[in-house]
């Protein structure tokens, strides 16, 4: 009987630890919301979300420029990351010899391990001058952020997409090959369509990464709180808005940064929920 009772106690303790992740998520959502929502409501949600003027010390909190910049930068990053990342995923899952794959896979995960500040630093030193000298503009620009983010989200995209491709039953591919398809045709017509759900999830999660990336973006995007007119213009994303001003903001200004966090959090949760549901559905 004592064994059974001890087992119950252990099970309860484990349950408590199992609830830690969810409760932390709830706590994060709650605190960001409590800090950020009032100022948003006070100044009007529409003028907060659709306002184009960000002058926190003068009491105008319009974050439309940051929303636009975040969306543009994220979509731009996908233009680079999706073709490159999917190619890498297909390569790893289908083409690469075993030894090449065993070398490449950890290398790509290492790309995820490199601190984002280092990406930003390399961006300032090489990418920004490159853009300034060849394409014009200040160099610190949407384009620079797009390129850096395009590289940074590769590991997320490749990892999940490769899993999805590898989860396609072998028989599909063998069937296609048996019908006389070349390997390339089998990949395009059979394997990729079958892995579509997981690949979409990979892209969405990569978008989440891009929206949320902070330090690398701050260093290369120029941080002007205006809606960019071209990819060579500087801009400021939601994340960089928070990180730039948190250091000295106080009062309503600080609350407005939390409100920016609320918007960012909402973006992420929507993206994550879609991706998670896709992955879960794909597994069934």
């Amino acid at each position: 009987m004592t064994v059974a009772r001890r087992e119950k106690a252990i099970e309860r303790a484990l349950l408590v630890s199992a609830l830690s992740a969810v409760s932390m998520l709830a706590l994060i959502a709650a605190f960001i919301l409590i800090e950020g929502a009032p100022v948003m409501l006070r100044h009007g949600i529409s003028s907060f979300l659709a306002g184009t003027r960000w002058a926190p010390t003068k009491g105008s909190f319009g974050i439309l420029p940051m929303i636009v910049a975040s969306v543009v930068v994220t979509l731009g990053a996908m233009v680079i990351a999706v073709p490159l990342g999917l190619s890498c995923a297909v390569f790893l899952a289908e083409i690469a010899p075993r030894r090449a794959a065993n070398f490449l896979r950890p290398a790509i995960q290492l790309l995820a391990g490199i601190p984002s500040v280092v990406y930003g630093f390399v961006g300032i030193l090489f990418l920004v001058p490159l853009i300034r000298e060849n394409l014009g503009g200040p160099g610190l620009s949407v384009l620079a952020a797009v390129v850096i983010l395009g590289v940074m989200v590769l590991p997320t995209l490749i990892g999940i997409a490769e899993d999805a491709i590898e989860a396609v039953p072998r028989t599909y591919k063998e069937g296609a090959l048996a019908l006389g398809c070349t390997h390339a045709q089998a990949i395009r017509r059979v394997i990729l369509p079958a892995a579509r759900g997981g690949i979409i999830a990979a892209v969405i999660l990569a978008m989440g990464r891009a929206v949320g990336e902070t330090m690398a973006v701050i260093m290369v995007i120029g941080n002007a709180a205006i809606i960019p007119c071209s990819v060579l213009d500087p801009a400021r994303t939601l994340t960089s808005n928070i990180a730039l001003e948190m250091g000295y903001a106080a009062g309503d200004h600080q609350k407005a940064l939390f409100a920016t966090g609320v918007v960012l959090f909402a973006f992420i949760m929507v993206l994550n929920s879609i991706a998670t549901m896709r992955i879960v559905r794909g597994r069934r």
Binding site: L19, V22, L25, I28, G212, G261, T276
Partner: peptide, 29 residues
């Protein structure tokens, strides 16, 4: 399912949000 979903979402939360949360919760609260 709730536990897994929570963990998946937490994995996707950007670090700056953790920064905000940590500041208001651990540092201040």
């Amino acid at each position: 399912r709730v536990i897994r979903f929570g963990a998946e979402c937490l994995a996707g939360v950007p670090s700056i949000i953790f920064g905000l949360f940590g500041f208001i919760f651990f540092v201040i609260q």
